[in-house]
Design a binder for these strands. Structure first.
Ligand SMILES: [Mn+2]
Ligand SMILES: [Mn+2]
Ligand SMILES: [Zn+2]
Ligand SMILES: [Zn+2]
Lengths: 154, 154
DNA sequence: AGCTAATTTGCAAGTATTGCTAACTAACAA
DNA sequence: TTGTTAGTTAGCAATACTTGCAAATTAGCT
C-alpha cells in the first residue's frame, strides 16, 4: 500500500475526496502488519474519531482493495482481513492466539498430476499452528492474547 | 470417509441412531468429489427425501466432521464445503464456474525465514484460476455452470 | 406395545457484510 | 465568504451462512 501522503495524492487525482475518515484509515493501515479485520480497524478508529461508522470502514477498505492498495486475506475464521503488504507472501495463523503473520515459502507450490493444466491465477497458502510465543508457553498461560488480532495501535 | 456400511457400523457402536436422514446423507457424501456445501447437499437430499431439514444436514455434517469422517474446506466463497476425501490434498477453485477440484502439489511448502520456527499443524493451499473446461472456452460461453457447485447427483 | 434417550425440525438469533438513501461536506467556483 | 454540487458518510434494513433452542418425533431396546 502506498503511504498516506501518496494515497492522498492518488485520491485527489481521481477526484475522490480526502475526508478525515479516509485519512484516519490510511494512517491506521500504513505499515500495519496485524492483518486487521474491518471490525478491529473500526474499534481502533473509533477511539480517535468517535462516531465514525463501521459502514464507512467497510466502504473505504473495499475501495482501497479495488484500487489494488490492499490485499484481502481469508484465513478461514469468518472475517476478511486487510493487508497493506501487497508483496507476494503467505500467512501463518496461530491457532492459540489467532495472530496472523506473514511468511515466505521456499517455492510457490506447483500443481501435479491431472490438474496440472489448470490456469492458475492465484495461490493462497495458509498455515495453521502455534506462533513462537504460544509454542514456547505450553506450560504457561495459553491465551496471552485471547482476543482476535487488533489493528495497529498507531 | 468410510463407506455408508462402515459408517452405519460405527454409528451403532457409539449408540447413535441410524436414521433415514443419516443414511441418505452417508450415501450422498460417499465418493462425492464435488465439495458440496451444506445447502447444495440439502437440495439434493430434498429430492430423495422431501421434508428433510436443512438443520439436520448441518447437524449431520457437523457430526461427521467431528468424527473425522469429513474434512472442512474453505475456499473463501462464504460457505463451508464438506470433503469426504480425508487424504492429504489441496484445492483448485475455478473462478469462472466455481467448481472445486482436488490437486496434489509437488511438495508441501515450507516456511522460510523468520517464521521458520512456527509449529505448523496444518497447511491449506487454495489455487484460484480457470478449470480446464472454462479455460478452453475463452471464446465460448463462460458460464457453462453459472451456479455454484452442486452435490453429486446420486 | 411401551419406554426413553437420541434425533429431527422449525424458528429465532448471531455474525459478517452489503444495499439503500437521506443527510452531510470537501473541493471548487463566484 | 458564500454557494454549489458531486462525492461521502452514517444508519439501518436486508442478505447469507450457521448455530442455539425447545418441542415433537422416532430408532432401538425390552
Ligand atoms: Mn500479510
Ligand atoms: Mn478435496
Ligand atoms: Zn500465538
Ligand atoms: Zn470452470
Amino acid at each position: 500500500m502506498h503511504s498516506p501522503t501518496q494515497l492522498a495524492q492518488i485520491f485527489r487525482e481521481k477526484q475522490l475526496k480526502l475526508t478525515p475518515q479516509r485519512q484516519l484509515l490510511f494512517g491506521l493501515l500504513h505499515e500495519n502488519k496485524a492483518h486487521p479485520s474491518a471490525e478491529s480497524l473500526f474499534e481502533v478508529a473509533s477511539k480517535q474519531m468517535p462516531g465514525i461508522s463501521l459502514r464507512t470502514v467497510y466502504q473505504t477498505l473495499g475501495e482501497l482493495a479495488e484500487m489494488g492498495e490492499l490485499q484481502l486475506v481469508d484465513v478461514g475464521d469468518g472475517a476478511k482481513r486487510f493487508d497493506p503488504n501487497m508483496g507476494e507472501h503467505h500467512h501463518f495463523v496461530c491457532e492459540s492466539c489467532g495472530s496472523i503473520h506473514d511468511v515466505e515459502i521456499s517455492s510457490t507450490p506447483k500443481i501435479r498430476g491431472e490438474g496440472a493444466g489448470y490456469e492458475v491465477n492465484d495461490v493462497g497458502v495458509v498455515f495453521h499452528g502455534k506462533c513462537t510465543r504460544c509454542g514456547e508457553s505450553t506450560k504457561r498461560s495459553p491465551g496471552h492474547q485471547a482476543k482476535k488480532q487488533v489493528a495497529k495501535t498507531k
